[in-house]
Write a protein that binds this DNA or RNA. Structure first.
Lengths: 168, 168
DNA sequence: GGTGCACGCTTTGAGTTCGAAGCAAGTAGA
DNA sequence: TCTACTTGCTTCGAACTCAAAGCGTGCACC
């Protein structure tokens, strides 16, 4: 607000465009590979990967949603697909009858194990190969700081657990 | 393939996740603002912005598509929406009857001018405020290098056509 | 025990994206 | 000229996402 610069300088603008293009191309390439290699979308892979990484391979739907999709219904849809393929199972939580606990099956673990090497390889080829090692620490630090800042200032409608409807 | 490291180390993995999360949150936030402020999606804004930036405010459909969407049909759809709102016009090219030349209208220019300050402001707040100036040159350089590398090694299905090295 | 609200998930409808197929216009070779 | 191939865009169908609405459960307070 009180910033004297009304817009962004050329370097900032370039960094902004480059960021969006890089992430877009990366996601597209990775998604393409996952579909070809394991018939998984990027979102489905993220879901499975989170579960594999979780203790006991189990997570509540809500916890699973954070960071993967921006709506609960989107997760329900994807979980339905994964369930039908036998990659996950869903069961009501014994602690809270409302919650649904999602668990990876052995087939799900195997699929993740099968596609993970190629996935990682793709990321390394596209993202880290053109980047010299000395840049990585800076990039890592900057992105981490930006991410924390964004999490602290979330978009208006993203996480207000309290107010269901938007004030709009 | 010839790289001895089979996977990614912790720092690389963290940078990868941070990159995807930052770009996702940024796009979500910017998209939300554009919708609220000008009833535009991010894609629609990109289309208009490219046209405003082009000489005479005119571009062929194909040239317009690069970097905005991954399919021609997606652009046709969005161009239809923008056309209906009077923000662009479409006319067959006099040089090549197959081509469609898209032009921004005055209304389109006005709309871009109206939403641009808020858009830029959002980006500055979210992306550049948590980043101290000393990091920007490195980030800019790294992302630029990665982007060029990705453009040189495009995803399998993205560029079946001949070379499309768009400059700019 | 009841009542009212908050929470967790699913269902539904509208909108957006992609790839494949289709159509029209240009181009090269005979 | 005719034919076959390429290019530029649109149409179509399927898949996916989101927000809103709906349903059942849990909790706070009386």
């Amino acid at each position: 607000m009180s910033d004297p610069t009304p817009g962004l300088n050329a370097e900032q603008l370039g960094a902004y465009f480059a960021l969006m293009e890089v992430s877009s191309l990366l996601q597209y390439a990775v998604d393409e590979h996952l579909r070809a290699d394991g018939d998984l979308s990027y979102v489905q892979f993220q879901i499975l990967a989170r579960l594999v990484d979780a203790p006991d391979g189990r997570l509540r739907m809500t916890d699973l949603a954070d960071g993967v999709v921006y709506s609960r219904s989107g997760l329900t849809y994807q979980a339905g697909l994964l369930d039908r393929r036998g990659l996950i199972t869903r069961a009501p939580s014994p602690d809270d009858e409302r919650s649904v606990i999602v668990s990876v099956t052995d087939a799900g673990r195997e699929l993740v194990a099968r596609v993970l090497p190629g996935h990682v390889d793709r990321v390394r080829q596209l993202l880290f190969e053109p980047m010299k090692g000395r840049d990585l620490p800076v990039l890592s630090a900057v992105l981490g700081r930006v991410r924390d800042h964004m999490r602290a200032n979330p978009p208006r409608s993203a996480k207000p657990r309290a107010g269901r409807g938007r004030a709009g």
